[in-house]
């Protein structure tokens, strides 16, 4: 048991704790948007902790070399870059398919924006059509 092994074990433990929080958040939150909030953040940091933890843990053992750490760092960076994008895609798709916000929500600027955009498009479509008929 040396310092590297201990650090790695601690990181993996913290990571699994955040995994647990992520799963708990899925149960406790009221609607899809808030579930996405908790699950994305906790799962990303949880994976980061577990992966870097495994890399550092492997450094501390006899068979370990630096190859473990560089690979886990690469995977962690890929995950860090792609996880928020998938969350964004899912939440946007949920909104577009009409899933309502939780009734406790205080403000919805996006609906206002979509409605004003729709009105603009209708205005723009009306004028050329009238011109074509004449």
């Amino acid at each position: 048991m040396n310092a590297l092994t201990a650090t790695g074990e601690a990181l993996v433990l913290i990571g699994t704790f955040f995994y647990f929080l992520s799963a708990l958040g899925l149960i406790r939150m009221p609607d899809v948007y808030n579930r996405m909030q908790t699950s994305t953040k906790s799962a990303t940091l949880g994976s980061l902790g577990v992966m870097l933890g495994v890399g550092i843990w492997a450094l501390g053992t006899d068979f370990g070399n630096v190859a473990w750490l560089t690979k886990t760092i690469t995977i962690a960076i890929f995950l860090l870059l792609t996880n928020p994008i998938s969350a964004h895609t899912l939440i946007r798709a949920a909104y577009k398919s009409g899933i309502p916000l939780w009734e406790g929500s205080v403000v919805d600027r996006y609906r206002e924006h979509l409605e004003s955009r729709k009105a603009e498009v209708e205005e723009a479509e009306k004028t050329p059509e009238e011109g074509g008929e004449e």
Binding site: M29, P30, L101, G104, S105, V107, D108, R109, R111
Partner: peptide, 9 residues
């Protein structure tokens, strides 16, 4: 469960 969600710009 202290949440107060909404969509802001």
């Amino acid at each position: 469960r202290p949440i107060n969600p909404g969509i802001v710009e």
